[in-house]
Every structure is written in C-alpha cells, then in structure tokens.
Amino acid sequence: TNFTTRQLTELEKEFHFNKYLSRARRVEIAATLELNETQVKIWFQNRRMKQKK
C-alpha cells in the first residue's frame, strides 16, 4: 500500500504515543485516514519490527 504523507504523519504520531492499538482505536484511525483496518494493523506490525532492528 502506498500511504500519503498525511496518512504516514498521522500513523507515526499515533505510534509515538501508542505502540499497540486497541481494535476500537484501529477502526477510528482507519476511518479518519480513509484506510481499512487491516492496512492500519499491518502498518503498526511493520513499524514495530522496524523499531526492533
């Protein structure tokens, strides 16, 4: 998935405060950013892996 700059900014901002999202928060973010819930979930999984390295 190619994310827009706005989407990436918002996802990174959320990640800064929360490494893990509740389902409710994931649904909320997905709706706000016009993404589906799975895209948000996978982005967070990938971002956590990236941070571990």
Rank of each mutant, 00 (worst) to 15 (best):
E37K: 01
H16S: 13
T9V: 13
N2G: 11
T5P: 12
N46I: 04
E28A: 06
N46S: 10
N18T: 07
K19C: 13
N18C: 12
E12C: 01
T9H: 13
T9F: 07
I29P: 02
R47N: 00
E34W: 04
T38M: 12
Y20K: 13
E14Q: 10
F15R: 03
R26M: 15
E37L: 03
E12I: 01
Q7I: 06
E14L: 08
A31F: 01
R25W: 02
V40Q: 01
V27M: 12
R47I: 00
R25I: 05
R47Y: 02
A30D: 00
I42G: 10
F15T: 01
T9Y: 09
V27N: 10
V40A: 05
F17E: 14
F17D: 11
K41G: 12
T5M: 11
T1M: 12
K53T: 11
F3E: 04
R25D: 02
L8W: 05
R6F: 14
K53N: 11
R6T: 13
T38S: 11
L11V: 03
L21S: 06
I29M: 07
K53S: 15
K13D: 06
A30F: 00
R6V: 10
A30I: 00
L11G: 04
V40D: 01
E10S: 08
T32H: 09
A30K: 01
Q7T: 04
R25Q: 08
T9P: 06
T32V: 07
Q39P: 05
L35F: 07
R26Y: 09
K41W: 08
E12H: 00
V27Q: 14
I42N: 15
T9K: 15
T5F: 06
R26I: 14
H16G: 15
T4Y: 00
T5Q: 13
E10M: 11
K50W: 11
N46T: 10
T9L: 14
L11S: 08
F15E: 01
I29Q: 03
E37Y: 00
T1K: 08
E28F: 09
N46Y: 09
T9S: 13
Q39H: 07
Q51R: 04
F15H: 07
Q51H: 08
Y20T: 08
K19Y: 04
A31Q: 14
T32Y: 10
R48Q: 10
T32A: 13
Q39F: 04
K50E: 15
M49W: 05
E37I: 05
Q7E: 03
T38I: 12
A30R: 01
K41Q: 14
N36I: 03
L33D: 00
E28G: 07
I42R: 10
K53M: 07
N36Q: 14
E12Y: 01
K13C: 02
I42L: 10
I29H: 08
E28L: 07
V27I: 13
Q51T: 08
K53I: 08
T38C: 07
Q51M: 07
L21F: 07
L35R: 00
N36V: 05
T4P: 02
K13V: 03
E37F: 04
R26S: 15
E28H: 06
K52N: 14
I42T: 13
N2V: 09
L8T: 08
R26W: 03
R25Y: 02
E14D: 04
Q39T: 12
E12T: 02
F3V: 02
Q39K: 07
R26C: 14
N2I: 08
T1F: 10
T32R: 15
K19T: 07
F15L: 05
M49H: 06
I29F: 01
L11T: 01
A24N: 09
N36E: 13
R26F: 07
F17N: 15
I29N: 07
F3N: 05
L35S: 01
E12W: 04
R47H: 03
E10C: 14
K50G: 12
I29T: 04
K52S: 15
A31H: 09
R48S: 10
R23D: 13
N2E: 15
Q39L: 07
Q51F: 04
E28V: 07
I29V: 10
K53V: 14
K52R: 12
N36P: 14
E37S: 08
A30L: 04
K19F: 00
S22R: 02
N36L: 05
R26E: 10
E12F: 01
Y20S: 12
L33H: 00
M49Y: 10
T4L: 04
I29G: 01
L21Y: 03
H16V: 11
E14W: 05
T38P: 01
E34L: 10
L33F: 00
N18A: 04
